[in-house]
Design a protein around this nucleic acid. Structure first.
Lengths: 241, 241
DNA sequence: CGACAGCTGCTTGTATACAAGTACTGTACG
DNA sequence: CGTACAGTACTTGTATACAAGCAGCTGTCG
């Protein structure tokens, strides 16, 4: 599980580079949900052979971010509402549980990190991805406080669909400021040792994220998987050049 | 996440077969923690080329069940106590949270399944793997009751190290009967609608599993990863033939 | 005009060849 | 006897060639 995001025991390989790159592109929606991928095309673009590209796609498929249909094609997974809900449930369960494991004395180093993180969240000139990175680090930091920081990597791996949904949300003017406020509330409750309050604030925060997503889905449903069998369609690319 | 165990959208490929087969062998300890794997050897044994074997190993590596050291070798991961603890934490968080989502009316089909499952757990002539399969199905069934059955696949994926540790435990005379009793207690509390009692029983059950593991670790530490950097060692096989 | 067969171009799956690197091993030398 | 060094046998990483299969277009025939 600590390995869930594909750490390859150190050594630098082109597969690893490509995997991370493609993963980032999928998560940031640079590769849109539903988009067709081609091992050959990607290989050509990235200047490598099919092998590392193919192996990267296999890894992404295992994470559910990509679907591979043998002899047909590979596609960026559409955001699956069921998986979003599952990820949300998972995340809420884990983050709330972590509150029960907070030690008497919080690790001052981590507390410092979090304080710093929160300060930066307040900046008004933050780009979308920057805020996202801070958000991610903040929640991971909370887990670290409870001594189960590594579990976050598992949650993160399962969170792909949720993250993409959230990004769709932030694209459509969800104010980061509100989220930052909620983060602050959670943090304050924790350092005050007020567990019940922390739990409430955490729950409210996570639920807010979720309701945002439902709003988005109504707004741009084409990026979400329809209930039925997600039939793949071969692309018919028409290019002017 | 629903895809975490590598479902390849239907079609039958030799990679899928091999992946499942190797995974099973690792989980059942047929391939011992620390054992060296060789893409070439496996390919020869399985009668295929390196490609599907290699791709399977990559998938297993992503799950943390195998470690691949470029240009050095591939090894079945030793059971990592930290990952066992993390998986246990994750599992406990998720299973307890699922109790909060039980509907008023439980799905009678699932309840039936569970009841049947429990009956079979009572049989005295159960093999180890049979009991394990029932255990797995039982816990997944509980999640299904809460409407978050799919989350179990994520937990299952992260649970590899935990499962291997548990199997070590059952190898060393942990009585399945005791576990079956605990399962029964949980189930009864749930159908009675006694949530608090269910929570207590669940917690006791999961903690019991965990303390078993700690006992095992003291008993046969060579299968566990030592704290330090898990340095790989090239095998030197001497074969008589 | 409609239906159907076959062709074409794409897809991924598998096999194989080669490249790069590591660790052991035997040997020569101090 | 110990040590340095080159050789060797193995590892995985990458590139490439070929096999198998699906989809759509197109020409032909009814």
């Amino acid at each position: 599980m600590g390995e869930s995001n594909g750490r390859q025991a150190g050594r630098r390989t082109s597969r690893r580079d490509i995997y991370l790159r493609l993963r980032q592109m999928v998560l940031t929606l640079e590769l849109a949900p539903g988009a067709a991928l081609s091992e050959n095309e990607l290989a050509a673009e990235l200047g490598v052979s099919r092998t590392p590209v193919r192996e990267s796609l296999i890894m992404l498929a295992q994470e559910g971010l990509v679907q591979v249909f043998p002899k047909i094609g590979s596609f960026v997974s559409r955001v699956d509402p069921a998986q979003v809900a599952d990820a949300q449930f998972l995340r809420e369960a884990v983050e709330l549980a972590s509150l029960d494991y907070l030690p008497e004395q919080l690790d001052p180093a981590v507390v410092g990190e979090l304080r710093d993180n929160l300060t930066r969240q307040r900046r008004t000139d933050l780009g979308l991805e920057e805020f996202f990175a801070l958000d991610e680090a903040f929640h991971q930091g909370l887990m670290k406080l409870s001594g189960h920081g590594n579990v976050w990597t598992t949650v993160a791996a399962a969170k792909g669909h949720l993250d993409r949904a959230r990004r769709l949300g932030l694209h459509e003017k969800v104010s980061p400021a509100a989220l930052a406020d909620q983060h602050h509330a959670i943090f304050d409750a924790i350092v005050d040792g007020n567990l019940a309050s922390a739990r409430t604030a955490m729950r409210a925060h996570l639920r807010a994220v979720f309701s945002d997503i439902e709003r988005i889905r109504a707004h741009s449903p084409e990026l979400f998987a329809s209930g039925d069998s997600t039939v793949p369609v071969r692309r018919n690319v028409v290019v002017w050049e």
